[in-house]
Design a protein around this nucleic acid. Structure first.
Length: 489
RNA sequence: GCCGCUAUCGUCUAAUGGUUAGGACACCAGGUUUUCAUCCUGGUAACCGGGGUCCGAUUCCCCGUAGCGGUACCA
């Protein structure tokens, strides 16, 4: 039985894309479920597109999701190096083998010639494909051209007829006609291999048991399989993940919202929520229970259950998961997570009491069940930190009540609250005092509580008045009620 | 153009050769001793189209259509 070894093989071309994260998550779930090894390999054969520091950022991002590798450029391993541009010698060795077997050939065609060829093919409504002009050059000619310094690439020699049968673990057998396959480039003129060559060599050399990648790679599967055959290697299993699409069905791009994982993190999406949401894009647990921790995912994951069709990234459902996980957090942890988003509010107040950890926790507590994203905490709790509330006096009047009535009720509320001793200024005692007063005078709750809440917060919607009053403190609360009373005059 | 993949509520999805086609998000309504939120209850909402095969197709096959992907000395 072959060892289970899977790899994540990104190109260091920028930030970690949310679609790539789904790829990692799927792969990670498979590896852990099968108790295999997880390898990070950096595919940097396109040096032009490489972004400085991208690999480090990527690893950092993944660490936030608790995705760790058994082997990789940052942790080492027995199958290194794990960066493709450091493996050139390995590719060279295998290339010689391939050339000797006659499975690949030198091509001296210039980019100009190829461009013209493709233009002609397009004009004639033909499929653009290399015309194989160099495929049957004699060894002598090839050698002579190399000697004169002519630039060349190495192309894979495709079969001229017949079919190539490939197997994808999710979709089953796919059959390609050999005539539809192009003699594509294996080694570029600068001697660096293309993805098609490097990935096959590496997956073999690194003893990868299951190649996992996005479905956009399906068309290159026949070429890859043929390469394995040319080398005389046994191919691994191939699992192509369905695409993650944008709201309008296209590729998930910046136009449709955030695509970088870090953007979601910065907006205050929780790691648990992102994982839970992403794993459900193309996969579903058998028992219909969609709330899943990473360990539950690993326990239940089976790549055979991955759906073949693409799925749309619907941020509304992510919001739901995020709200859910925010509600599950302990207050201490949530307050800690909210801290960065509260900085702006903290800067507004000079009141020392409002800058204590205790006050922050109380404020966060009142918003915990209302929060969809951590980043909302600042705006939602602004009134806890400002000295002067800005709002229209009309806000204070409840539904069909009148300003006169409201004023009268306000007066009563003030008097009741005033009598509560400082040391028993709590949610419960405030509530008890007010409710029994309202009952005694035979009033309606809303007639008293709405204006109180509005005066305390200056908002249409907020946590309840007793809660807010408790957190605000007696002095501040009375001050605001008095101010509300004045606004009505 | 050529090649390939895909097709169940708006979205993520489940199941099935005979079912009232199930769940989740969103949405709507009601309830939870003030608003918002939470929570609870209920509701609206789907088998892409056409042919076959079959006693019977959402399910199997073919065709079409649509979406997506590939068609680079990018990955």
């Amino acid at each position: 039985m072959k060892n289970i070894r899977l790899r994540f093989a990104p190109s260091p071309t920028g930030f970690l894309h949310i679609g790539s994260l789904r790829t990692v998550l799927f792969t990670y779930a498979i590896v852990k479920k099968m108790e295999g090894k997880f390898i990070l390999r950096i595919e940097d054969t396109d040096q032009k597109r490489e972004v400085e520091g991208a690999t480090e950022e990527l690893i950092k991002s993944l660490e936030k999701f608790n995705i760790n590798f058994d082997e990789g450029p940052h942790v080492g391993g027995d199958f290194g190096p794990y960066i493709q541009t450091q493996r050139l010698e390995i590719y060279n060795k295998h290339l010689k083998d391939l050339l000797a077997k006659g499975e690949a050939y030198h091509c001296f065609c210039t980019p100009e010639r190829l461009g013209k060829m493709r233009a002609d093919q397009a004009a004639n409504k033909q499929a653009p494909r290399y015309d194989r002009a160099c495929r049957d050059l004699s060894p002598e000619i090839v050698e002579a051209k190399i000697k004169t310094g002519e630039k060349f690439v190495i192309r894979q020699k495709m079969p001229l007829d017949g079919v190539v049968k490939v197997f994808d673990e999710i979709r089953g057998e796919i059959i390609y006609k050999a005539q539809d396959l192009d003699d594509h480039v294996l080694i570029k003129s600068d001697g660096v291999p293309t993805y098609q060559f490097a990935s096959v060599v590496d997956d073999h050399e690194m003893e990868i048991s299951h190649v996992t990648r996005a479905e956009e790679w399906i068309p290159s599967l026949p070429k890859n399989i043929l390469l394995y055959q040319s080398f005389g290697w046994e191919p691994p299993k191939f699992i192509h993940y369905p695409a993650v699409l944008s709201k309008n069905g296209g590729k998930l791009s910046k136009r449709d919202g955030d695509v970088a994982v870090e953007d979601y993190l910065n907006k205050g999406y929780l790691v648990e929520a992102i994982i839970n949401f992403c794993i459900l894009l193309g996969w579903h647990p058998k028992d219909d229970n969609e709330i899943l921790s990473m360990s539950e995912i690993i326990e239940k994951f089976d790549y055979k259950d991955i759906r073949p069709s693409g799925s749309i990234f619907d941020v509304e459902k992510l919001d739901y998961f995020n709200g859910y996980y925010i509600r599950q957090k302990s207050l201490d942890e949530l307050a800690e997570l909210c801290k960065p988003y509260l900085e702006e509010n903290l800067a507004k107040t000079s009141d020392k009491k409002q800058q204590t950890k205790e006050y922050l926790k109380n404020v966060v507590r009142l918003e915990q069940e209302r929060l969809k994203k951590l980043s909302e905490i600042g705006e939602r709790t602004e009134y806890f930190f400002t000295d002067k509330l800005e709002y229209d006096a009309k806000l204070l009047v409840w539904k069909k009540s009148t300003p006169e009535q409201t004023k009268e009720n306000f007066d009563q509320v003030y008097k009741v609250l005033e009598k509560i001793p400082d040391d028993s200024w709590t949610n419960n005692s405030i509530g008890d005092a007010l409710m029994s007063h309202i009952q005694a005078v035979g009033g309606k709750n809303g007639d008293y509580l709405w204006p109180m809440r509005a005066a305390l917060t200056g908002r249409e919607a907020s946590p309840g008045p007793f809660d807010v009053a408790e957190v605000l403190g007696k002095e501040k609360s009375l001050e605001r009620i008095k101010e509300g009373l004045e606004r009505l005059s």
